[in-house]
Nucleic acid binder design. Structure first.
Length: 469
DNA sequence: TGAAATGTTGGGGCG
DNA sequence: ACGCCCCAACATTTC
């Protein structure tokens, strides 16, 4: 009899799971365990919605395991202690887990590996970061050459399927999956591998899949033009390899005209995800400071009241407020909206990107250290391959371009439902005669802009320029 | 995956 | 018919 532990962290799936597959091959009996590490679940970076999504995902995984003759073991504590104890109890010979990229996870895993026979497998990204280097042996720091190498990389391998039956060692005592916090009804995501794969299939399957409109729709905040898969990729309910294969299959299905482009562009977005995981693994310092050392001296204003207005969605710029309220209510924000609010915080308000990074982590269900950090540093202009600092989003123009009818705004900012299209992106310009009809007094019911964008842009350019060295 | 400022061009109105 | 001006549309440069 041999026993192996499958240590689940952010790979809540049975299909295409290389850690599970390795454990399955290595032993007759498997113990699937999720460890509730107080350091993680009580971290200031973890919000209730993401935690609730995780717990809900654990329940789904337990159900899927039970359908295959096993169940999910839950224990509280320091992973090193918990795993040591479990090995002592069961005589398990090996522990298998999917390798992570965050500094927290890497430090933890190195520590655990000193006292526990831990084997880490690929899976969080399609390719292990260490396997993609420039010809001189150094890591890439620019996306385009990285993506070219990534695309030409061999051996993606085929996604594997879940073992039909998983033999679990009997008699091991665990705890209940916490039932608090629970996902509020305002959250439009159902946790679990089944739902993740269903969404992947709806987005990419068949000949009229939404992915074929991705090129034209992905930036439209008023449409559902994106995959909505980020929470599932975050917790490994869908594997990157499955997503990549689906993108390539979709591209191959319509090779001729323009609509095949959508799948190609979606694949590029997936590669951005790979890129930022790669950057975090190979440049862990980006977690605490700007990647570009020349931009570490910016004189951030860090005004607490303005930050609070940004956070609660009362800046007076409808597209910014709609986006922040969408995240506060649903735990998700459209990617175009993320860029707009990040630009507004770092450029218009001159608040340190780390403040925004932390707030996003506290509120996003898909909050992922690597992608979130990469996105914030990109917008702030401080990151790898970042937008140049003088690239400042105009919240009015962005709204006009990507929410032309103001549908996204009215959905999330109910005060503005009666504002006519002509003024929906700049309601402060409404003449008195229209103000009366809309029952929306600017400065009372809906705030006046907390900052003048034209002035703020000039100010940001000046401060970034003088902070550059 | 920006936007503003500045430059260029060409068609049409007009004396 | 001609030259001049205006300005929209587009292109390029700049931050």
């Amino acid at each position: 009899m041999s026993v192996a532990i499958w240590w689940i962290r952010r790979d809540l799936r049975l299909n295409d799971n290389q850690a599970l597959d390795a454990a399955f091959k290595a032993a007759n009996f498997i113990i699937p365990i999720f460890i509730l590490d107080p350091k993680l679940i009580k971290s200031a970076w973890v919000g209730e919605k993401r935690l609730a999504f995780l717990y809900s995902g654990l329940r789904a995984l337990d159900k899927d395991l039970r359908a295959r003759g096993a169940s999910l073991l839950i224990r509280h504590g320091d992973p090193e202690v918990v795993l040591g104890q479990l090995i002592h109890e069961t005589g398990a010979e090996k522990v298998f887990a999917e390798a992570d990229v965050s500094p927290f996870a890497n430090t933890r895993d190195q520590r655990v590996a000193q006292s526990v026979p831990l084997t880490l497998t690929p899976g969080l990204t399609a390719y292990l970061p260490e396997s993609l280097l420039k010809s001189d042996g150094n890591p890439y720091t620019i996306f385009t050459p990285f993506s070219k190498n990534w695309l030409s990389h061999p051996d993606l391998g085929n996604p594997t399927t879940a073992p039909e039956h998983i033999s679990m060692l009997a008699g091991v005592q665990g705890e209940d999956i916490p039932d608090q916090p629970r996902l509020p009804d305002s959250v439009p995501f159902v946790a679990g591998e089944r739902e993740g794969l269903r969404r992947l299939d709806i987005f990419t399957g068949g000949l009229i899949a939404p992915v074929y409109h991705y090129a034209s729709n992905r930036d439209r905040m008023d449409l559902e033009g994106t995959s909505g898969l980020s929470p599932y990729l975050r917790f490994g309910m869908v594997s990157m390899r499955q997503a990549i294969m689906a993108a390539r299959d979709a591209e191959a299905r319509l090779p001729i005209n323009g609509s095949g482009r959508g799948a190609e562009i979606w694949l590029i977005e997936l590669i951005w995800r790979e890129f930022y995981a790669y950057i975090l693994k190979l440049f862990p310092s980006v977690r605490s400071q700007s990647f570009r050392s020349a931009l570490r001296q910016i004189a951030w204003r860090n005004d607490r009241e303005e930050f609070a207005a940004w956070a609660e969605g009362s800046t007076g710029y409808p597209i910014v407020d709609a986006a922040m309220r969408q995240m506060n209510q649903t735990g998700w924000m459209h990617n175009r909206a993320r860029m707009i609010v990040a630009s507004f915080l770092t450029k218009d308000l001159l608040v340190d990107w780390r403040w925004g990074e932390r707030y996003f982590m506290q509120h996003l269900i898909d909050g992922d250290v690597a992608s979130n950090n990469g996105g914030w540093q990109w917008t702030a202009g401080t990151g790898t391959d970042a937008a140049p600092y003088f690239r400042v989003f105009n919240p009015v123009l962005q709204g006009m371009k990507f929410d032309p009818m103001g549908i996204y705004i009215r959905r999330n900012v109910p005060e503005l439902v009666d504002v006519p299209n002509e003024f929906i992106h700049e309601p402060w310009k409404m003449p008195d005669s229209i103000l009366k009809q809309t029952a929306c007094l600017i400065g009372k019911k809906y705030p006046a802009p907390i900052v003048d964008h034209r002035m703020a842009r000039e100010r940001a350019l000046h401060i970034y320029k003088s902070g550059e060295r």
